[in-house]
Write a protein that binds this DNA or RNA. Sequence first.
DNA 1: GTCTATATTTTGATAGAC
DNA 2: GTCTATCAAAATATAGAC
Lengths: 231, 231
Amino acid sequence: MATDEEAPQRPKRLTRAESKARTRELLLDAAAETFARKGYAGASVEEIAESAGFSIGALYSNFGGKQELFLALLESRASDRIAEAAQLIDGRQPDGTAAAGLGKLLIETADEDVAFESLRAEFWLYAVRNPESMATFAERVGESRDALTGVIARLLEGQGRGTDYPLQSISTVVIALFHGLVQLRRIDPGFVSEDLFERTLACLFTEATMTGVQLPGPSAEQSGSGENADD
Amino acid sequence: MATDEEAPQRPKRLTRAESKARTRELLLDAAAETFARKGYAGASVEEIAESAGFSIGALYSNFGGKQELFLALLESRASDRIAEAAQLIDGRQPDGTAAAGLGKLLIETADEDVAFESLRAEFWLYAVRNPESMATFAERVGESRDALTGVIARLLEGQGRGTDYPLQSISTVVIALFHGLVQLRRIDPGFVSEDLFERTLACLFTEATMTGVQLPGPSAEQSGSGENADD
DNA sequence: GTCTATATTTTGATAGAC
DNA sequence: GTCTATCAAAATATAGAC
């Protein structure tokens, strides 16, 4: 008989590496939930580990520590759902469907997925306080903005008007407005009616198409990801 | 001779109550700075007290503890500078001065006053995680929005168009956009050009005046401060 | 690779001197 | 009213068993 160190590559269960990778993912899931609920400083590694169904030792076996775990989360999970959702919308009818879809996304995010905006706020605060990690966060945000820019470009194209100059400015405004309104609606739903985002987007896009995209920012060019002024 | 317990009401130096009030204010200042820099959970009462030039005991003599100190800060310092600035702008020329002034405020806030948006993020996260304090935060935000609404009303009035229906929606959008853009510019100044806010505001106001304020939200009415959906 | 037990440090909060 | 000294709890991180 061969020892069990030679052949068991078949899916008898899980490879050692696969098992470790799964543990890593479960720990990242638990970390996302716990950091969102308690904050970076307020969450303990013990709570994260237990919430994932593991011990502290398992966490330290997979990550260097609390900070490294948070940074791994920042790198792997800091992309913005507004860009993902916009890409799903991409290819739809060129009428108001897109704005309506984003409006619905905002209400769902504010009312149901409490963790999302909290975790993003934690990412932002951590990056502001630890400038060496800001580049990573900026990268993720930039990717999301670029994805959204592409969607908006095809959208305006479908409406038959200019798609050139300051589209990145438009997507920046959309992202800023999205997060700002999500936060305000969590403060008080009465502040942000269910159709406020959709209506504002319609206003922005109308102005964009009517003036040939003349609204925000043809003066100063937008770089893909500029330098940070922190460190 | 009269004992020194009877007459010394004259401004020999500071009354006992005045001295205590001054200590309170200094502690609140230090708390604002420290909570902004380290976060609620990350800041220690020792650091706050020392930063104010007092001992831990003095802090506990003036506040019930860390949580009570933070809540006192939330109640006394959570108003929004965008509303204050708008009121300063109030009464100016009815041309683009207002939008330009707010645009300048955004760049200054993002680039120079790091603590402001960080502390607001801490207020938001604390209130999201401690729903019993959300009403207080919502009150401050509502006051700021109402102040801004008044300024916008007089502004549009000066431009000669409708000032009635959804002005609160407009100020809500302005506030959301302000904070969203401040956050994005701190992530990467290249994301938010210096005139993006001003241009977007001009777009919104133009649309507002041209359509007779038809843009956001004539369908759902906005209550002054509605109920929170948390507790 | 994961768990249990523990060393070390730090924190919020309190007691008593002045 | 403020300071100094200190307690008790909780946290990060590590060491060694399995």
